[in-house]
Simulated assay, not measured.
Amino acid sequence: MSAVAWTATGSLAAWLWLLLGQGFFWRTDVRLPPRREPDVWPSVGVVVPARDEAAVLARSLPSLLAQDYPGRAEVFLVDDGSTDGTGELARALAERHGGLPLTVGSPGEPPAGWTGKLWAVRHGIGLARARDPEYLLLTDADITHEPDSLRRLVAAAGSGGYDLVSQMARLRVESLWERLVVPAFVYFFAQLYPFRWIGRKGSRTAAAAGGCVLLRTDAAERARIPDAIRQAVIDDVALARAVKGAGGHIWLGLADGVDSVRPYPRLADLWRMVSRSAYAQLRHNVPLLVGTVAGLAVVYLVPPVALFAGLVTGDHAVAVAGGLAWAVMTATYLPMLRYYRQPLALALLLPGTAFLYLLMTVDSAVQHYRGRGAAWKGRTYTRPDPTAPEPSPEQP
């Protein structure tokens, strides 16, 4: 066999393993687990970090204020140095819509060693804990919730004995580039962190989706959230690891009734969204970057190349191996496209989308070594500093 045939066969073997041995990551049936409503509903503090979110807040905040929750619940929105009137808009929306009580706070600029979002989350948790809630719902300012969202989350956590219940919000898919890139983003995430493994006790796999995380307050205290992860750029995964590492039982699945309204209409918008944290995901490790690029090429790019090369050269072994690998790849992507209600023919374009993600990952590393790090809304974060001081107890 030629080197090309061996490579194509290796790609096919990788896809057969991914199909059967990676926690059935491609299935989209991991939704909120069976639940029963409690006799007495626990209290909940809803924490919303927000930095320059006026463009989306009018759609997201009213959905939180309108939660049909039988117990006591309050919303704490933390205005993280916004310049677009986010805090003022939040107060105006609360006056106009009513519903759950709203408190708007502002923590000031984050000190060294903290990301802005986690500093805002820390302030919001401090405000919420003054009310002594049993649960904290951490949700982003671009996330809308159906009226029974909080009720379903709390019931699922209580019924399953979970310390953390997280839902991967359904991202917006309207523009051409969103259709091409967004479903693949969730597909790749599930491939890295199979949802079935996350919810299994004893499994080392841990992840959450930062847009919707329900967390027991005592579990947050045991895991020292957010202080223990104060430098994390990929804060949702770091949060889940901390909670699970402290003995917590966690769960992550796809959402019904929890949606992101943040638009990413251009490729440049999606590129920034992915590249700002891709190299941080690889722990700023060059060998890991090289291995990831090579792996993406073998798994996603080799199948179509092998198929067409085999057909052109008459090498049937190469064509068959490449074609079968591409067929398995396509089949595993179909459930995610159905979940996002997209044309199934887009599954054939997954190799091209994977190539875009490969370029975004490389660009993330390039930006890091140019000193730009992970940039988001005017802030840039470099490699975490293990010598950064612990926060003092007096800080809010």
Rank of each mutant, 00 (worst) to 15 (best):
D79V: 11
D84F: 10
A50H: 01
V75H: 02
D84C: 08
L64Y: 02
S60T: 09
V47K: 00
R51A: 13
A54W: 01
D68H: 13
E88A: 15
G45K: 01
A50V: 02
D52H: 08
G87Q: 11
G45L: 05
P49D: 06
V47H: 03
G81N: 11
L57V: 04
D68C: 06
T83E: 14
V48M: 07
A50T: 01
E88M: 13
G81L: 06
V78G: 09
V75N: 07
R72D: 15
T86H: 12
A73I: 08
L64F: 05
Y69V: 07
V47E: 03
S63V: 03
A55F: 09
E88D: 15
V78W: 07
L77K: 10
V75P: 06
S63L: 02
A55R: 15
D84I: 10
L64A: 00
D68I: 05
V46D: 00
L65W: 00
V48Q: 00
D52A: 06
D84S: 10
S60I: 03
F76R: 13
G45D: 02
D52Y: 02
A55C: 09
G81F: 08
G87I: 11
S82C: 12
T86W: 08
V47I: 11
P62V: 01
R51H: 15
L65C: 02
E53G: 02
G81A: 09
V56Q: 10
L77Q: 12
V78H: 06
V48G: 00
P62C: 07
L57K: 05
V47R: 00
L57D: 01
V78D: 03
A55G: 12
G87Y: 09
G85K: 08
F76C: 12
D80C: 12
D52T: 06
V78P: 07
A73M: 06
E88R: 15
G71A: 05
T86V: 12
G45R: 01
E74G: 15
S82A: 14
E74K: 14
G71D: 09
V47S: 01
G85L: 08
P70E: 03
L77S: 07
L61M: 09
A55Y: 11
E74C: 13
V48W: 04
F76S: 12
S82W: 11
V75L: 04
Q67I: 01
P70C: 08
D68L: 06
L65Y: 03
V44Y: 04
S60M: 04
V48P: 02
D68K: 14
S60E: 04
T83K: 14
E74L: 12
A54F: 05
E74W: 14
R72I: 13
